[in-house]
Design a protein around this nucleic acid. Structure first.
Length: 938
DNA sequence: GACATCACG
DNA sequence: GACGTACGTGATGTCC
C-alpha cells in the first residue's frame, strides 16, 4: 500500500528506548557467555509491549524505528561543543547498539539511521513527507527537542506514561506554539545538549520575549528596546551565540534519505525470525510470551552449564529448569514418609502452604508443598473440595473433600516432627504467614529462613521482595499467576476449589522457586556484609510479630458503632449546609466537583490546577479559603474529617473484628518500608487518629479486657537523639543529657532568646526546623510548613546550619556516600539502597532527601526492633502481652496488679535496646502511660 | 487502577 | 538558572 490520505505513520525514537531500557534494568548478561544484554532485553520488552498495544483506529499503517548513527553529526561542524558534555557511553552499553537494530528487524519493523544526521532529523523529514502526503503521524518519544514538529496532523506519544503530546501540551511546556519552539529553545539553551542560548534567560522568560517579538531575529533586531538592563545587554552581546543555538535546535526536515514512506508499511513479525533472535539472546520469559502471542511453539533455550556462570551472580550448581509438569502429588503416608526421609538427609526444606484466605486468622489449610532441591518438589493436598460432576451443573463444587488426599491430621502428624526439629531448617517466602497457619494446628515451625527477608536485607530500596518480582528478576522465570487458578474480582474462587492437578503445579513451583532463591541469596549475605542485619534484626523478629498478630487487640464494637452513628448524623447536617451554601446538590466527597463549585461557580481566588487538570482542594487550600472567611470550605473541612473517621476507622474497624477471638488482628509487613520500619495492614493500626480530640476518641474503643490494663511505652524524640549522635551535635547531645526541652533549646540557640518564658510561636518554628532536618530540609518545604515567606525560611535554615555545623556536614557526607556507593547505612549496619541518587532532575532531589532521612529513620526502626526481639524473654513469667508497634511506641495488655513491674522491665529493655551493638552518646528515654483503653494509656 | 485526600510516626 | 521539593507508610472514595 502506498502512503497517502488515511494512513498513519508511527516514528519511534529508538535511542530513547535504548537508554530508558538500559537505565531501567540491572546489568543483565547473557547466561551462556556473559555478553551484556540488559538494554537489549528492555528494548525488546518495550517494543513488544508497544506492538501489542496496536489496535483499533489508532493502529499505524506504517512504522519505523529511528536511531542515531553516531554521536558526530553536521551540528558539530556548526558548533564543535554540541553535546560535548555528554558523559561517556557506559562500557557495557556500546556493544548492545547493533543488537537493538537486529531486534527491530526481528520484529519486522523498518529500522532507519543515517550518517551525519540525528534520529531527530530523520523523524522531522519523514514526518514532513507523511504530512505532505496527507497522512497522520505519531512520534513515539517524549523528547522535548521533537516538540517543534507537533501540529498539522503530527502528535507525540510518551509511551511510558501513555500520554499524548499535542499542541496544547507543547504550549504548556514552552509557552508558545510548536512553530516557535525553536526560538524559545534558542534563547533558553539546553545544558543537556550543551546549547549555550542566552545566559540568564530560561524557558519562561524566553517564551515571554518570543510572544512579544515573534521570533529570534526580530527580537535581536529590537534588543535595544528591552527594559531590563541585564537582559538587554545579554541579547546584544550574545546575538551570534543565540543564532547558532537556533541552528542547533532546529531540525533538518530535508535529510537525504534512501527509504521511502511506502517501504515502511506495517507487517506482522515472522514468528520464526523473531523467536530465533529472542532465543539467541536467551530471553526465556519474553520468548514464551511472544510465542504465546504469535501462536507458535516457544523456542528451547538450553540452560547454561555451571562452567560459565553469569558474571554478576554467585556460581550455582547446575540446575534443572523450572518445570511444573515434573512435580509430585503426595497422596498417602507412604509417599510423604519418603519425602520426610530425604528432608532429614538434607537438613533443610522449602515449605509453602496453600489456604483459603490471605487472612491467616481465618484461613483454612488446603495443602502443603515441599522442595528439597531445585526441581524436586511435591504438593500434599489436604483440603481440596470435590468438583461437582459436569452433569450436576454444579458451578460451585461441593463441600465434600476431593478423593486421593491425605487427611489433614495424618499429614500434620508426619510433618510436625520435621517442622519443629531444631536440626532442620525450614525455608519459606514470607514464612510468618505459613508459621501462623501451622501455629493454629499446634505446630511451632522452627528454625526458619525467609527469602523475602534475605532479599530485604540485601536489596532494600532496589526493588520489591514479593516472590513474583524475585523469581523474574533472579531466576528469569515468571511463576504461574495465582489469578490463573483463582480468577479475579467477584468470580474469584478460593484455593480449596482449585483442581488438585493444577494446584500441584502452582504450589510445588512456589516451593521450588523459594529454594532456588534461598540458594542464591544466602551466600550473598556475607559478601554484602548484612549477615548481622539479617540474623539480629530480621530473622528473630518473625516469631515476635507472629505472636503479636495472633494476640490481637480487643476492640469494642459498640463504642465504634455509636461513634459511626454520631458521625453520620453530623455529616448529614454538614452536607445539607454545604449544598445550601453552594446553591446546588453535589457530591461533597468528590474533589473534582468541589473544585468546580469553589473556583468556577463561586469564583473564589486561589484555584490551582494540578497536573491532571483538576483543581487542588487539599486541606491546606481549604484552610486558606476558610481563613479568608468563606463558610463553605470550612464546612467541607469538618465534613471531610468526619468522613475519614467514619469510613476508615469507626466503620471499617468493626469489619476487622475476628468473629472467633472478638479481637482485631493486624498484619505487619516486615519488608514494607525501605528504611526498616514496619508497615501495618488489614487493618492498619499504625495510623489510628490521635492529633485531634474528635479522632483521639476512636482510641477509646481499643480496650483492655476486664481486670487488665493497657500500657503504652514510647521513645521520646528518638530520631532527633539519633541525629544528634550520628551528626555529632555537641550542644544537642548535652541538651538531651540534661533532659532539656529540645525544641526550646534549639530556639534559644538560634534566636538568642532565653528558654524561660519563651514565645510558643518561636518554639514551634524551632520544632518544625528540627523535623525538617530529619527530612532533608529545604527552604521551600519549611516555608510551606510554617506558612512563612521562603526567604525567611531559608534564613532560619542558614542560621541553623551555622549554629549546628555538624548537620550540614552530616547531610553532605551522607549524600556523597550514597552517590559513591549507591546505598546508605544505619548505625546497626542496615543498608538502604538509593538507586536514583545519581539521576538528573527532580528525582535526584527526592533521592537525596530520602538518603539523608533513611539512616535516621532506619536506626530508630532498628532500635525498636531490637527491643521487640528481646521483649518475649524479658516479660516471660509476667502476665503481659505485647500487642502493637507504632514506630516508636509499644502497646501492651497487662494484668492490673502487675503494671508496675511490667513497666519497669519493658522500659529497661527499650532504653537499653541499642546496646551492646551501639553505645549512643545520648540517652534513650521512654515514657509510659496506662489506662483502661488506648486513649488513656497514650 | 490512577489519583487525591488524609490518618499516623 | 530553572525546576520542584520536606521523610516513611496504608486505606478510602471518586472517576475513567
Amino acid at each position: 500500500m502506498g502512503f497517502g490520505k488515511g494512513c498513519h505513520l508511527h516514528l519511534i525514537d529508538g535511542s530513547a528506548f535504548i537508554f530508558r531500557a538500559y537505565h531501567a534494568l540491572p546489568p543483565l548478561t547473557r547466561k551462556s557467555d556473559g555478553l551484556p544484554i540488559g538494554a537489549v532485553a528492555g528494548f525488546c520488552n518495550m517494543l513488544f509491549k508497544y506492538v501489542e498495544g496496536w489496535n483499533g483506529n489508532d493502529a499505524p499503517t506504517h512504522a519505523a524505528v529511528i536511531f542515531d548513527y553516531s554521536s558526530k553529526t553536521f551540528r558539530n561542524e556548526i558548533y564543535p561543543e554540541y553535546k560535548a558534555n555528554r558523559p561517556e557511553l557506559p562500557e557495557d552499553l556500546r556493544p548492545q547498539f547493533p543488537l537493538t537494530r537486529e531486534a527491530t528487524r526481528a520484529f519486522n519493523i523498518a529500522c532507519i539511521e543515517r550518517e551525519d544526521y540525528e534520529a531527530d532529523d530523520i523523524i522531522a523529514t519523514l514526518a514532513r513527507e507523511a504530512r505532505e502526503a496527507g497522512g497522520r503521524v505519531t512520534i513515539i518519544s517524549s523528547d522535548k527537542d521533537l516538540m517543534q514538529l507537533v501540529g498539522n496532523g503530527v502528535e507525540m506519544l510518551d509511551a511510558m506514561k501513555n500520554r499524548r503530546i499535542g499542541v496544547d501540551e507543547v504550549v504548556e511546556k514552552f509557552g508558545v506554539k510548536p512553530d516557535k519552539v525553536v526560538d524559545v529553545q534558542a534563547l533558553a539553551g539546553d545544558s543537556v545538549d550543551n546549547i549555550p542560548g542566552a545566559p540568564g534567560i530560561g524557558v519562561k522568560t524566553a517564551a515571554l520575549l518570543i510572544q512579544e517579538y515573534g521570533d529570534v531575529e526580530n527580537l535581536l533586531a529590537h534588543a535595544e528596546e528591552i527594559k531590563q538592563p541585564k537582559r538587554r545587554q545579554t541579547l546584544i552581546d550574545k546575538a551570534e551565540q543565540i543564532r547558532i543555538s537556533r541552528k542547533l535546535v532546529e531540525l533538518d526536515a530535508h535529510t537525504p534519505m534512501d527509504e521511502k514512506l511506502d517501504d515502511l508499511e506495517v507487517q506482522d513479525p515472522k514468528p520464526e525470525e523473531l523467536l530465533t533472535f529472542l532465543a539467541q539472546m536467551e530471553f526465556r520469559t519474553l520468548s514464551k510470551r511472544v510465542a504465546e502471542k504469535l501462536g507458535a511453539e516457544p523456542p528451547v533455550i538450553p540452560e547454561p552449564s555451571a562452567a560459565a556462570p553469569a558474571a554478576d551472580a554467585a556460581p550455582l550448581p547446575e540446575q534443572a529448569p523450572i518445570d511444573p509438569e515434573k512435580y509430585e502429588r503426595v497422596g498417602d503416608a507412604e509417599a510423604l514418609n519418603r519425602w520426610v526421609e530425604v528432608i532429614r538427609e538434607r537438613g533443610c526444606v522449602a515449605v509453602d502452604t496453600e489456604t483459603t484466605s490471605l487472612d491467616e486468622m481465618v484461613a483454612e489449610l488446603v495443602g502443603i508443598s515441599l522442595c528439597v532441591e531445585p526441581g524436586q518438589a511435591c504438593y500434599i493436598p489436604v483440603g481440596h473440595r470435590a468438583v461437582g460432576g459436569e452433569a450436576a451443573d454444579d458451578l460451585f463444587g461441593s463441600d465434600e473433600l476431593a478423593e486421593g488426599q491425605m487427611a489433614l491430621e495424618e499429614a500434620l502428624a508426619i510433618l510436625k516432627p520435621v517442622l519443629e526439629d531444631d536440626a532442620i531448617l525450614k525455608i519459606g517466602q514470607n514464612m510468618k504467614y505459613d508459621a501462623k497457619i501451622f501455629a493454629r494446628h499446634d505446630v511451632a515451625v522452627a528454625p526458619i529462613d525467609d527469602t523475602m527477608l534475605l532479599s530485604y536485607a540485601l536489596n532494600a530500596g532496589k526493588h520489591g521482595h514479593g516472590m513474583d518480582v524475585l523469581s523474574e528478576r533472579y531466576l528469569d522465570h515468571k511463576p504461574i499467576p495465582i489469578k490463573s487458578l483463582l480468577g479475579s474480582g467477584k468470580a474469584a474462587i478460593t484455593f480449596d476449589r482449585v483442581a488438585i492437578g493444577d494446584a500441584v503445579k502452582y504450589a510445588a513451583e512456589d516451593a521450588d522457586i523459594t529454594l532456588r532463591l534461598w540458594q542464591l541469596f544466602k551466600p550473598q549475605l556475607h559478601r554484602a556484609r548484612v549477615t548481622t542485619v539479617y540474623e539480629t534484626l530480621e530473622r528473630p523478629l518473625v516469631p515476635v510479630l507472629a505472636e503479636m498478630e495472633m494476640n490481637g487487640v480487643l476492640v469494642d464494637r459498640d463504642t465504634l458503632s455509636r461513634m459511626s452513628n454520631a458521625f453520620a448524623q453530623k455529616m448529614a447536617g454538614l452536607e445539607a449546609e454545604i449544598h445550601e451554601l453552594a446553591g446546588e446538590n453535589f457530591n461533597v466527597g468528590s474533589p473534582k466537583q468541589l473544585g468546580e463549585i469553589l473556583f468556577d461557580k463561586m469564583g473564589l481566588e486561589g484555584g490551582k490546577k494540578g497536573k491532571t487538570g483538576a483543581y487542588a482542594t487539599g486541606a491546606d487550600v481549604l484552610e486558606d479559603l476558610a481563613a479568608e472567611g468563606h463558610a463553605l470550605p470550612a464546612r467541607v473541612l469538618d465534613w471531610r474529617q468526619l468522613s475519614k473517621l467514619k469510613s476508615t476507622y469507626t466503620d471499617a474497624l468493626q469489619e476487622h473484628i475476628n468473629p472467633e477471638t472478638g479481637r482485631v488482628h493486624t498484619s505487619y509487613v516486615q519488608t514494607g518500608a525501605n528504611t526498616g520500619r514496619l508497615a501495618s495492614t488489614d487493618p492498619n493500626l499504625q495510623n489510628i487518629p490521635v492529633r485531634t480530640e474528635e479522632g483521639r476518641r476512636i482510641r477509646e474503643a481499643f480496650v483492655a479486657p476486664e481486670g487488665k490494663v493497657m500500657l503504652s511505652l514510647d521513645y521520646s524524640q528518638i530520631e532527633l537523639r539519633i541525629l544528634a549522635h550520628v551528626a555529632g551535635l555537641a550542644e544537642m547531645k548535652q541538651a538531651f543529657r540534661d533532659g532539656l526541652d529540645i525544641h526550646a533549646m534549639t530556639a534559644s540557640e538560634m534566636f538568642n532568646v532565653p528558654i524561660e518564658g519563651m514565645d510558643p510561636m518561636v518554639r514551634r518554628q524551632a520544632k518544625a526546623i528540627n523535623f525538617g532536618v530529619i527530612y532533608g530540609i529545604s527552604g521551600f518545604g519549611l516555608a510551606r510548613n510554617l506558612r512563612i515567606p521562603r526567604s525567611e525560611a531559608q534564613g532560619f535554615i542558614d542560621r541553623y546550619f551555622e549554629r549546628f555545623p555538624g548537620i550540614k556536614a552530616y547531610m553532605d557526607d551522607t549524600t556523597a556516600f550514597a552517590k559513591e556507593h549507591g546505598y546508605v547505612q544505619t548505625l546497626f549496619g542496615r543498608k538502604i539502597h538509593t538507586p536514583e541518587i545519581n539521576s538528573k532532575g527532580p528525582t535526584a532531589g527526592f533521592a537525596r532527601r530520602a538518603a539523608i532521612n533513611a539512616p535516621i529513620q532506619g536506626a530508630a526502626a532498628d532500635v525498636i526492633r531490637r527491643a521487640m526481639i528481646r521483649m518475649p524473654a524479658a516479660i516471660d513469667g509476667l502476665p503481659a502481652k505485647m500487642l502493637l508497634q507504632v514506630h516508636d511506641e509499644l502497646l501492651f495488655e497487662v494484668d492490673a496488679d502487675a503494671v508496675d513491674p511490667v513497666i519497669a522491665r519493658v522500659k529497661e529493655v527499650m532504653e537499653g535496646a541499642a546496646e551492646p551493638a551501639v553505645k549512643l552518646d545520648v540517652p534513650l528515654t521512654v515514657d509510659a502511660g496506662q489506662g483502661a483503653n488506648w486513649a488513656e494509656a497514650h
